[in-house]
Amino acid sequence: MTTLTGTGGATTKRGAATKWRGGLAEVVILLGLVAVFSILNPTHFPTLTNLATILNTASIPVILGVGASAVVLTGRIDLSVEGVMGAAGMTFVLLSANSRETADIGWLAWPAALAVGAALGALTGAIHVLAKVPSFIVSLGIWYVGLGIAAVLFGYEMIPFLTNESAVAWPTATLAGIPNSFLLALCVAALGVLIERMTRLGRAAYAIGNNEAVARMTGIPVSTFVVILFAFAGACSGLAGVVGSLALGAGAANVGVGMLFLTLAAIVIGGTPLGGGRGGTLRTVTGVLILSTLYNGLILAGVDPSIQSGVSGLVLVAAVVAAGWSQRERLRVFK
């Protein structure tokens, strides 16, 4: 027994060290980026205004990333974020004070939009679980369904502009130099951390991602939890749609365009592998900050903003490759 005591103690320390290093690498990348861009562009990059800009652009992907990484933890994926953002965003705009004067239910428009998102997410999860169809293809379909709902809501009339100016200004208004949108995103991230650390749902998500067969044998209600996590991800996408609509000041079906790449790339570069079981919300927040800083720096350096999705795509592939590199072997089946 004495030998086991010794190794047990040693391994605990070793484990703690690995954990710390793992989280640290991403922070070092982030600080490195900040340092590089500060040196390259000392007049425009390291300013408080630009910090607010970066945090503001990071807020929507952070909100999306919290939900999406909860799904990715189980080894699933949710490709529907852009469509769900569109549907929830249009719902929010049409239920708020707007130039079309459709309806104004005040703050209740927020929960209404979240409910639309959660319902679409739950639909994705339910079809995936009940019909046993891979989640990426179901969520691809729901992406389109969401876009279609947004298009139907948009209809054939004029663009619905939000008329409540203080509401439109809210996301970019700052509190102690930090934009409200990012504060909201931090609240969502805190909720995500609570779920994954303190609840059976969150712990089960890690267990499912690690070994789903064992999770079922252990009596974890895998299907139910997966549907709940998809609904949570949908609600996050819905909230992101609201923030996006506020930022636009108008309703648009394509309010989420480009967000899917950004979110997925941020999740993987943050340290949550697509296979699931590791990583989590805080990792994803770091990943979003890395990418937002990168784009901001590139755009300030005069790079064409339209390459953003391309950079996200490359980062996504590079991060997936890096995460899976050690698992390559001769007869591995990969689809």
Partner: peptide, 13 residues
Amino acid sequence: QIPSFALTLGTLG
């Protein structure tokens, strides 16, 4: 040996 949907999603971007 990465999943094809992740790779081609990147290529799509």
